[in-house]
Nucleic acid binder design. Sequence first.
RNA 1: GGUGACGUGGCCGAGAGGCUGAAGGCGGCGGUUUGCUAAACCGUUAUACGCUUGUAAAGGCGUAUCGAGGGUUCGAAUCCCUCCGUCACCGCCA
Length: 421
Amino acid sequence: MFDLKAIRDNPQEFDANWGRRGLPPQTPDILKLDGERRALQTELQELQAQRNEKSKQIGEIKKAGGDAQKVMDEVTAMKNRMTELEERERTIAESLNQHLAGLPNMLAGDVPEGKDESGNVEVRKWGEPRTDKVPEHFDIGEALGLMDFDTAAKMSGSRFTILSGGLARLERALAQFFLDTHTGEHGYTEVSPPLMVKDNALFGTGQLPKFDNGFQTTTDHYLIPTSEVPLTNMVAESIVGAETLPRRYTAFTPCFRSEAGAAGKDTRGMIRQHQFYKVEMVSITKPEESKAEHERMTGCAETVLKKLGLPYRTVVLCAGDTGFGGTKTYDIEVWLPGQQRYREISSCSNCGDFQARRMNARFKDADGKNTFVHTLNGSGVAVGRALIAVMENYYDPKDGGITVPDVLKPYMGGVGKIQKP
RNA sequence: GGUGACGUGGCCGAGAGGCUGAAGGCGGCGGUUUGCUAAACCGUUAUACGCUUGUAAAGGCGUAUCGAGGGUUCGAAUCCCUCCGUCACCGCCA
């Protein structure tokens, strides 16, 4: 969310920033509502002060044994006006909040301009992309008999997959490897969080109210679309000690998405599923540390790809492509030889104090002042897509098998190659 | 799922319609004492918002906040309702 005072002081700055995302000026509406609200508030507070004063008098008169009826009638007479002001104040505050809750975060100054994906800028590239003709992962998997979309569709519909044997184990091996690397080498604390959350948790991280169509739900919960939600909400509604920052959390969880609006996109294979596994990283930092943490986190995600020997490139998202909560986002795209192109496997965002404001997450700074923390999240990395990448990059055309990358061998019980059983 | 109890400041814990932003304690901060440390003693110590003084740093006044939201009342931490959460016992269960 936003600091109304800052908007009041610098409306043109906010409008310019939102303008980079392609939004029309927002502050005229905001300032109008804010002004109305404050005027009502001032008037209401004056009445409340009078009421409190008179009520005090009544108490004193009664204690002295007098008749307070006259003053009591005076207060009663004020009530209609007060009720009216209260209601109007509430209505205006509500529409103001609704308006603010739907607006995306301020972009960092070094985010490149651009309307969409095409404006993203490559910042790094690693590895030698494999250029020989390789089948796509679904063909490799089905040929091995270890990946079954048809059977999954019978029980669950489209966008579900059944993995078995070596591929099921490869998925688990990847997750273990990611977790062990982030906990053992990158200083993250492993967390096993709830997979179902209430709406306020999704509001805190910014997925609600704006995007209320992307979720799988139960009767009274949302299934997490990413463990960014529970991990970031670990500091919601709290004041954490400065000495505990930065906090670094990682979790391996399933993620659930409705993929509404993705009709026709990536319909084949397991690139885009209703359910997939992801290892997520979340950092909670002091404001002055978040930029460096963002670079560090992106590096942590890149590290696991390097260890796996998967070629990738890192792009900084342009203004128009940066997500709702991010001030700046790096996407890491892994090389998929089956498609002969780079596909997103990780997204690392610095959210600044945006989520912290929404979930009221603060720390005591050096002056003893309660200050909003900064939050960051990044995939470290998407397990399903990593599985695809390993399959295609380590595909052996001689026998249709998949060579197991060295770093995964310990997690595969020493198996060196996944072959048709 | 059933029944019962409970939710008060950074923490513990009193208060049971007005004198309560809230006793007392712990913790924090400042000070006195002190060779150093400890102890003791004194003082201080919530947040948000509005109005206002000031170039500012910082003040003054007011409003709201005792899990959240409604209600009753001239007046609510205190009474009533709904929701959220915690605990205990019972049931069920991986």
